[in-house]
Write a protein that binds this DNA or RNA. Structure first.
Lengths: 156, 156
DNA sequence: GCTGAAATTAATTGAGT
DNA sequence: ACTCAATTAATTTCAGC
């Protein structure tokens, strides 16, 4: 089964911890840290990649360094809970690069989006793009002034 | 200046787009895609690393694959807006692996945290850890049922 | 499933335009 | 700032335990 939870031993966890912080580490370096041979380490990584535990390796770009100073959380409430509406909304939002995260929520809010934009004018542009694609009645945005922590590493 | 916005040309942008999606691409491969020599490409990457545009390279772990099925957004309101309180709160939250994002907000909510946890019991454990470290009076959590989009790539 | 070494492939440096 | 070639370092495969 593809989406089963695989068992990880302490070496696997340590590999994940290290690579989630720095995937540019050489095998030799990483293996030495964990007192493994390079290719024992290599086989564990390949297994976790095959099992879908390690999804991919990416470069992290500093948003501030490229002028993306504003993070917006957009809470959406809807009356239309049809599958078709969600599909349309999901497709529209997923196609917008500034929408970096998108969740279906439990409780009051139906959907939560996280946007990364340059400034308020840029937010407005993305917002208009969004409501043009799908009619959204109840939308409320909150803006982040400061990013205190941002971590791609998940707790393992 | 370290936190100045550097100018990027189309080649730089294309490199960032590619490496934000897949940092395991070989230089040769990447350079060929963009019709550059490997070493022109390499120098651009090194420059963007030195400029702090590319902050790091990380492995992305699939949360579901390691049993982290629940994302919680925690909105915090406080009466204590002192620097000292924030420092204490920031230190406590930053030290908790399950707190993957943490923002100071404009508007009604003072702080917004994103937590990655196994289940409701795990959320409760992290919540207790948090309020033990700093007294929090007004906390409200929203839970994500489904992650529709999650992107580490920023729009460049 | 591991080690250690060999083979392959990729990253980095350097010379020259 | 680039290309092309040479060098160095990393990854991947293979033989044996």
């Amino acid at each position: 089964m593809a989406n089963e939870i695989k068992k990880l031993d302490q070496n696997d966890r340590n590999i994940l911890k290290a690579l989630q912080q720095d995937a540019s580490l050489s095998l030799e370096n990483l293996a030495a840290q964990l007192s493994l041979s390079t290719n024992a380490c290599w086989r564990r990584i390949k297994r976790m990649e095959a099992d879908g535990i390690i999804a991919r390796r990416v470069a992290i770009v500093e948003p501030e360094a490229v002028g993306l100073g504003m993070t917006a959380f957009v809470a959406v409430r809807t009356n239309d809970h049809s599958d078709q509406w969600l599909k349309k909304f999901a497709a529209a939002a997923s196609g917008i690069d500034e929408v970096v995260e998108f969740y279906r929520m439990a409780g009051e809010v139906d959907y939560m989006l996280k946007l990364l934009v340059r400034d308020m004018a840029d937010y407005d542009r993305v917002y208009k793009k969004l409501i043009k694609a799908v009619p959204l009645s109840d939308v409320s945005a909150s803006f982040a002034m400061e990013r205190i922590k941002y971590e791609t590493a998940v707790p393992v």
